[in-house]
């Protein structure tokens, strides 16, 4: 069983290793992720949101519905933890 797991892991690693040949070089300023969408956010964030920190302005202004959904996820996780631990205790008594 352990040999089978090791074999699966090594196979996945070899596949991903061949996948890295098509990735852009590390810290390349002209990689596709850096030249398409993000310059618009960096250049416009000061005049549109008046916040110098770009990460904060995207997180709480452009994508604030995403952050609202994230708080829903945390709330659901807390309620799920409470329910799981409470049911077990009641059944044991």
């Amino acid at each position: 069983m352990r040999v089978l797991a090791l074999l699966t892991v090594i196979l996945t690693g070899i596949l991903l290793f061949f996948g890295t040949q098509d990735m852009p070089n590390w810290a390349d300023p002209n990689s596709p992720a850096s030249i398409h969408v993000s310059p618009r956010y960096i250049e416009k964030t000061l005049e549109e949101t008046a916040t110098p920190n770009v990460v904060t302005s995207v997180l709480a202004d452009y994508r604030s519905y995403d952050t609202l959904g994230e708080t829903t996820v945390i709330f659901t996780a807390g309620v799920a933890c409470m329910l799981i631990l409470r049911i077990r205790r009641r059944r044991r008594e």
Binding site: A33, S34, S38, T45, L46, V54, V58
Partner: peptide
């Protein structure tokens, strides 16, 4: 990805190539 000289200097042109890409961080 924090804009330098943000307040008190007016709006000036910002070079996007001199800041790290902020979207993956978010």
């Amino acid at each position: 990805p924090i804009v330098e000289h943000a307040h008190g200097h007016g709006i000036h042109h910002i070079h996007a190539a001199s800041y790290v890409n902020p979207l993956p961080h978010v």
